[in-house]
Simulated assay, not measured.
Amino acid sequence: MLKQLSIITMAALFVSNASFAKDSSLYLGFQYPGKAHNAISITFDDARHSQVDVGTAILDKHQVKATFYVSPFNVKERLTKWQDTVKSGHEIANHTSSHVCTGNFEWLRKQNLSLEETTLAWLENDILSVHKHT
């Protein structure tokens, strides 16, 4: 049943996407390169070493560009490779400084970093403080 539901959901997304893309009035003045009608956004999280050690070469081979939401502590360990990633046309975006996320992860609860326990003021400070690393 779950498999059937997944297939139905995917089919609905494709149909919805196809009909949305045909409405050219939504994209006045914009055309995708190579007469393409759709695009896929590829993003990666946390600056995992495998992303820059292996993944960017695969993306570059296929001329695909991605956005990487990086964490400073992982970038530092592969700084030159991340700099090369930017030079090859990929986008780097800021993550949060503390990598706060859901309390589903026990290690975050132990550090009092679960998203459910933060305030908006704390989260704003954490996001803005990432600029210290750029």
Rank of each mutant, 00 (worst) to 15 (best):
F105P: 02
H49F: 09
V75A: 00
N125F: 10
Q83I: 02
H99V: 02
L2P: 12
D23R: 14
Q111I: 06
L108M: 07
V54W: 12
N112W: 06
K81I: 01
Q111A: 15
F105C: 11
L79C: 08
Y32A: 13
N125S: 14
D84G: 03
K76G: 02
P33N: 07
I7G: 03
S19G: 10
E116I: 02
N17R: 15
Q83D: 04
A57K: 13
F105A: 12
H62I: 01
K132I: 05
S97H: 12
T119F: 04
T43M: 04
T43Q: 06
K76Q: 11
A21Y: 05
D60Q: 08
V52W: 03
S41C: 13
Q63W: 07
A21N: 07
S129T: 12
I58G: 01
H131R: 15
Q111L: 14
L115D: 05
Y69L: 00
E91A: 10
S41W: 14
D23P: 06
T96H: 03
W82A: 00
P33W: 08
H62S: 01
M10G: 03
I7S: 09
V86E: 09
S129N: 15
K110M: 11
A47Q: 01
K61E: 10
F73Y: 13
S97F: 13
S129I: 06
T134W: 15
I40L: 10
C101A: 13
R78T: 02
D126L: 04
A39D: 06
G29T: 02
A21F: 07
S98C: 12
K65T: 03
S25I: 06
P72A: 12
S114P: 04
H49S: 14
F20Y: 14
T85P: 01
G29R: 06
E124C: 09
H90M: 04
I7Y: 11
I8F: 04
F44V: 02
N125M: 09
C101R: 07
